[in-house]
C-alpha cells in the first residue's frame, strides 16, 4: 500500500514536470500581452485574441495544410516502397537477396545530415525547390521501414504462400490479398511513424522552400518568431498550440501501434 502511494506520487510529479512546457504554452496562448509582460504563469482571464491575431499575421492554416500534404505524401511513399521491398526480401527467394538486404540496412549508418549538400543540389537542378516532390522524395526510401516490415512478413506462415501458389495465386495478388492485410499492425506503426517524423522535419524544408507556396508549418513558426518573437509571445504560443494539436492527437490515437511496432524492432532486432 505504501509502495503504491509512493509510485502514484512519483507518477504525478513526473507527469506534471514533463508536461509542464506544453501546459505553459497553452496557458500563455490565452494570455493578454499585459499578462505576458507581467511574467504570469496563468492568464488573468481567458483571451482568444492571440489565435485570431496569429491567423492574420501569417497564413498559418495554409502552412498546416502544406505540412499535412507533405507528411501524407511521404507516409504513402514510405509505405509503398517499404512493403514492396520487404515482400521481395521475404517471399521471393532470389539469389543475392541477403546481400542486397545488408546493403539496404547499411544505409542506416549514413547520417542523413551528411548528405544534405548534394541532395540540395539535386533538388535545385531538378527545379524542385518549393515543390512537394522536393520536400518528400528524399525520404521515400526508409531502411527502418523495410526492416520493420520484413520482420513482420517473416512471421507469416510459409504454408500460406505455398497453398496460395497451388491455387494459382500470383505474387502480386498474394501481396495485396494476404501479405498486406495480415500486417495491418506493422503498417499502421510505420504509417504513424512516417507521418509524425515528416511533420516534424525542420532542416530539409528550411533548405528547399523559400516562399510561402509550400512552406511547412515548422518553418512558418521560425518566420513568426523572427516577425513577432520579440514582442507577441502569446501569438507565438497560440501558433505552437495549433501546430502541436494534430501530432499530439495522432500520437495519442496511434500510440498503441507505435509501441508495438517500435518494441518489435528493438527487441527482435
Amino acid at each position: 500500500m505504501k509502495k503504491k502511494i509512493i509510485i502514484y506520487i512519483l507518477l504525478i510529479v513526473s507527469a506534471f514536470l514533463l508536461f509542464a512546457p506544453i501546459l505553459y504554452a497553452i496557458s500563455a496562448s490565452f494570455m493578454s500581452p499585459k499578462d505576458i509582460y507581467a511574467g504570469k504563469l496563468f492568464p488573468s482571464e481567458f483571451n482568444f485574441d492571440a489565435y485570431r491575431e496569429v491567423m492574420d499575421s501569417i497564413p498559418l492554416l495554409h502552412f498546416l495544410w502544406v505540412s499535412f500534404v507533405m507528411s501524407f505524401m511521404a507516409m504513402v511513399g514510405q509505405l509503398v516502397l517499404s512493403s514492396l521491398s520487404a515482400y521481395a526480401f521475404v517471399f521471393i527467394p532470389f539469389k543475392g537477396r541477403n546481400l542486397i538486404f545488408f546493403l539496404f540496412l547499411s544505409t542506416m549508418l549514413i547520417p542523413w545530415e551528411a548528405t544534405i549538400i548534394p541532395n540540395f543540389l539535386t533538388i535545385l537542378h531538378l527545379n524542385w525547390l518549393n515543390t512537394y516532390q522536393g520536400l518528400t522524395f528524399p525520404f521515400f526510401a526508409l531502411p527502418f521501414g523495410i526492416f520493420l516490415l520484413r520482420q513482420h512478413f517473416m512471421t507469416l506462415p510459409k504454408e500460406l504462400w505455398e497453398s496460395a501458389q497451388v491455387d494459382g495465386c500470383s505474387r502480386l495478388r498474394f501481396f495485396f490479398k494476404f501479405a498486406l492485410p495480415l500486417s495491418k499492425s506493422s503498417l499502421s506503426a510505420l504509417a504513424v511513424y512516417g507521418f509524425l517524423t515528416t511533420w516534424n522535419k525542420y532542416l530539409w524544408p528550411l533548405l528547399v522552400t523559400n516562399d510561402d507556396s509550400v512552406r511547412p508549418v515548422q518553418i512558418g513558426l521560425k518566420m513568426l518568431i523572427a516577425q513577432e518573437g520579440s514582442s507577441q509571445w502569446n501569438m507565438v504560443m497560440a501558433a505552437v498550440v495549433m501546430i502541436l494539436l494534430p501530432t499530439l492527437l495522432l500520437l495519442f490515437i496511434g500510440i498503441k501501434y507505435i509501441r508495438e511496432g517500435l518494441t518489435a524492432g528493438a527487441v527482435k532486432g
Binding site: 506544453i22 516534424n200 515548422q218 501546430i243 502541436l244 501530432t247 499530439l248 495522432l250
Partner: peptide, 10 residues
C-alpha cells in the same frame, strides 16, 4: 510518450 508528438520547432 507525448514528447514524441512534439516537433523540434514547436
Amino acid at each position: 510518450s507525448s514528447t514524441l508528438g512534439v516537433s523540434v520547432a514547436a
